[in-house]
Design a protein around this nucleic acid. Structure first.
Length: 827
DNA sequence: ATATACATCCTTTTT
DNA sequence: GGATGTATAT
């Protein structure tokens, strides 16, 4: 339905103050900023000024008088992006941005849910579980079900449940959809887990989205309230939205989400129930409501959609016009970051994807350096080459802080780190264990979390024996089951441990613990308090930093670390000091005299739960080379970028090859390439030690997809490597050299690798030795299938066919392959 | 209940 | 290479 004229034409209201905001914008950017209203998709290529468009848009809306600052909701994925957006809008407007909602999806939802929690069976003090908490709870549920936690690992099951939630599948739907035994076990775990969450008065990250959607669907009046509050909704990184987030946006902006959807079905509806089913009791059309404002502006780049594994659905951005038929689409293709050779490489690579919007990045900045491609002998040589290039560029005046080394998996950082250390170059590694995920920090926070919410059994179970007090798994199990069966919190159980059936030694230990907790509660609530109640006058002057310190002192946590001989405990103490400093900062910044300690704690916990250490990310001190995964690099840029480990099996990752998710891998490579402003180098190693002894590697297929004109060395040697005849390794023959047979499109090229097994020291029909007794065949593997790619470990080589090796597996040998390294196609 | 020794498993991860 | 979990002994 076309609704021309239905939107306010504030564009025409001449307003010099507002028009000022259009200066310096290119044509499509300006159109986006001036968009009259209604659904708008901005396809913002890498480096095309997407944040600029968003900030100017917000400022423009305000200055034209289209709406007040407080009537705009801008949603991002990270706290960092939200903070930057707010900051830049403030700069543009030259005034405070108080009232403007700039938030991550999750914090916006958390804020809404705090107010409305009772409607969903929670209290407003509900706890937010991070992935570790939720994994623990899933594990407990699986054990309670008697599921085999070997086959059903808590992590895998948690991911499945997460996927269900992100696709807005209720427990019931998950159970209905479950086909096999595995799915059914997962669905049952989901049911138990969800029940436990409610009993714990806790929500996981996914719940923040899903429960808000529930809230809006079940309470049209609530939905209406928020829909009226926000006349304009803007979304950053739209390509990474999942179905729950898509639906959240629909509910906030549109008339009737379920019927708004175009032919392909709307995101959530499209996926919520699986194929063929399009109804859902929870999402029934809402009757008699007012039309939505439809002012939804989303900005993103389908070519940078790299979070599919977290249920992000690229179709949200690909099918935007189907979902919103009258949507305007604006493309930003002028790049302000990189030189043309780099953009050519990016353009050429991404062309190999089929599922995408056509796009061609260009720049006015000139061609610049060609992209350097290097094949190195092994991972050490690769690291040395990268470091020597870093030194060379540093000599040319490029600051170390403007250089980054990017890799597919964290494991690849080690060799680079070693070389950088040897060269005495300063570096920082982004990623790894986050501050708030560190065991000791999490322990301290869990104490606070349990004091705050005694129903939080995960926090209880975490801290009850930390430091060790002689309360083992059996005792904890008894306390928890007694709490569950009598419907009370663990706090009440530990007041009378004998009633839970604990042995005398355990009773004594628990009583000591209970005494410590009581003391802490007195501090928090300002006096003796009946068990379980959050009432009582909370102390006014207690600061969170003090509370942290009280926890560490009264529980003996700090004392144990101080007494320890373990040198690692020194670092743990430092981390706790850092937590203390963080709490002090919070106290200073958030001190509200009218607030009592409990409510301060409430906000403190919420903040820490939703905060990663985003602030530290990539904003490290100058003079340091930055090392990080490609995923972490999204949104960042550097003068010089090194992309290392471009080898099949690493990048693209073997699991992505197996599951056919090459397009997302390619987008990841695209993200990496487009991080570079002036210098880009891509390397691969012929041999690499990953876990254990070095293995022969095959250059990434992505190398061959780069346009040769953009490269400094497109020789077969750099791109495909020289044949090498591996010897015995790990007590077996190295068959990985077969991988050299693979050469892209299959056209034979002079000087190419050998096509004959005998030249590899293999005979037709020769046995390939199994590498691992525990290796299971992938479910889809069967005799007579073709094995593309490298590193199969067993079976019989029947023949080779171009770049394909045909392998037959023996009937009996069920244990023969490393799944994940061979790509199979049915003959 | 806990300490130790052994086996096993390895993407990516904005919240 | 190293972190994490399980089996075994104390």
């Amino acid at each position: 339905m076309v609704r021309a004229g239905a939107y306010p034409r504030y564009v025409n209201s001449v307003n010099a103050y507002a028009e000022e905001l259009l200066e310096g914008l290119n044509e499509p950017q300006r159109r986006a900023v001036q968009h009259p209203g209604g659904p708008l998709l901005v396809i913002a290529g890498a480096g095309s000024g997407k944040t600029r468009v968003l900030t100017h848009r917000v400022a423009y809306l305000v200055r034209t008088g289209e709406c007040g600052l407080g009537e705009i909701l801008a949603v991002t994925f990270t706290n960092k992006a939200a903070a930057e957006l707010r900051h830049r809008v403030g700069d543009l407007l030259g005034r405070s941005t108080r009232g403007l909602w700039v938030a991550t999806f999750h914090s916006a939802c958390a804020r809404i849910l705090r107010v409305e929690a009772e409607k969903l069976g929670y209290t407003r003090t509900f706890t937010i579980y991070d992935s570790d908490d939720s994994k623990r709870l899933v594990k407990r549920c699986l054990e309670a079900e008697g599921a085999d936690t070997k086959r059903f690992t808590p992590n895998a099951v948690r991911n499945q449940i997460s996927d269900h939630k992100n696709r807005l599948r209720s427990v019931q739907q998950a159970q209905d959809l479950a086909a096999g035994h595995y799915d059914r076990t997962v669905a049952d775990a989901y049911a138990a887990y969800q029940k436990q969450l409610v009993a714990n008065n806790a929500m996981d990250f996914d719940d923040l989205m899903a429960r808000t959607v529930d809230l809006f669907e079940r309470y049209p009046d609530v939905r209406e309230r928020y829909r009226r509050a926000f006349k304009h909704v803007l979304v950053d990184e739209y390509q990474d939205t999942n179905p729950a987030q898509y639906r959240f946006l629909q509910l906030l902006c549109m008339d009737d989400p379920m019927h708004q959807a175009g032919p392909s079905g709307g995101g959530a509806g499209r996926d919520a129930l699986g194929a063929g089913d399009d109804t859902n009791a929870l999402t029934a059309p809402l009757a008699g409501e007012e039309p939505g404002h439809r002012n939804l502006m989303v900005v993103g780049d389908d070519a940078q959609s790299i979070y599919g594994f977290r249920s992000a659905d690229i179709r949200n951005i690909l099918d935007f016009e189907d979902d919103f038929p009258d949507a305007e689409v604006i493309k930003l293709e002028q790049n302000y970051r990189s030189t043309q050779h780099i953009l050519d490489a990016a353009n050429g690579l991404i062309e190999h994807n089929t599922n995408q919007r056509e796009k061609h990045l260009f720049t006015d900045e000139g061609t610049g350096d060609e992209v350097r491609v290097r094949a190195l002998q092994d991972d050490h040589a690769e690291a040395r080459w990268v470091v020597s290039e870093i030194e060379r560029l540093a000599g040319e005046g490029v600051p170390l802080g403007d250089m980054a080394v990017l890799y597919r998996t964290n494991a690849l950082s080690r060799a680079i780190e070693t070389s950088l250390t040897q060269a005495e170059l300063d570096y920082q590694v982004i990623g790894g264990v986050r501050f708030f995920d560190r065991a000791e920090v999490k322990d301290a926070l869990s104490y606070l979390a349990w004091l705050h919410n005694p129903a939080n059994t995960v926090a209880f179970a975490r801290v009850v024996n930390r430091p060790r007090r002689g309360i083992g798994d059996t005792s904890v199990g008894r306390i928890l089951s007694h709490a569950a069966s009598t419907g009370v919190t663990p706090l009440e159980v530990i007041a009378d441990p004998a009633a839970a059936g604990l042995k005398t030694a355990a009773v004594r230990a628990v009583t000591t613990f209970a005494g410590q907790i009581e003391e802490l509660r007195e501090r928090l609530f300002g006096g003796p308090d009946e068990v379980g109640g959050a009432g009582g006058p909370a102390s006014q002057d207690l600061r969170i930093a003090d509370l942290v310190e009280d926890v560490l002192r009264i529980t003996g946590y700090r004392a144990e670390l101080e007494a320890s001989e373990d040198p690692q405990d020194e670092g743990r103490l430092e981390n706790l000091d850092q937590l203390h400093a963080y709490a002090e900062e919070f106290d200073a910044a958030e001190a509200t005299p009218e607030d009592d300690a409990f409510h301060a704690l409430d906000r403190f916990l919420q903040q820490t739960a939703l905060l990663s250490d985003a602030d530290s990310k990539a904003d490290g001190p100058d003079g340091q080379v930055t090392l990080m995964t490609l995923h972490n690099a999204k949104g960042l840029e550097y003068d010089a970028v090194f992309l290392v480990g471009l080898e099949d099996g690493i990048f693209p990752h073997s699991r992505a090859i197996d599951s056919g998710e090459l397009e997302e891998e390619r987008r990841l490579a695209y993200v990496g390439i487009t991080r570079a402003r002036r210098h880009l180098s891509i390397t691969w190693a012929r041999r690499r030690a990953m876990y254990g002894p070095p293995q022969s590697q095959v250059p990434s297929r992505f190398l061959r997809e780069l346009p040769h004109d953009a490269l400094d060395d497109a020789s077969p040697e750099a791109m495909t490597g020289q044949p090498s005849f591996g010897g015995a390794e790990r007590g077996r023959r190295d068959f990985s050299a077969i991988g050299r047979i693979g050469r892209g499109s299959g056209a034979s090229r002079p000087g190419g690798p050998p096509r004959d097994l005998s030249s590899l020291g293999l005979k037709r029909g020769s046995d390939l030795v199994s590498s691992r007794a525990d290796a299971e065949p992938a479910p889809s593997w069967a005799p007579g299938q073709r094995v593309r790619h490298v590193k199969f470990d067993a079976g019989e080589v029947v023949r080779m066919d171009g770049d394909v090796v045909v392998v037959r597996f023996d009937e009996a040998g069920e244990k023969r392959l490393i799944a994940g390294f061979a790509r199979l196609e049915t003959l």
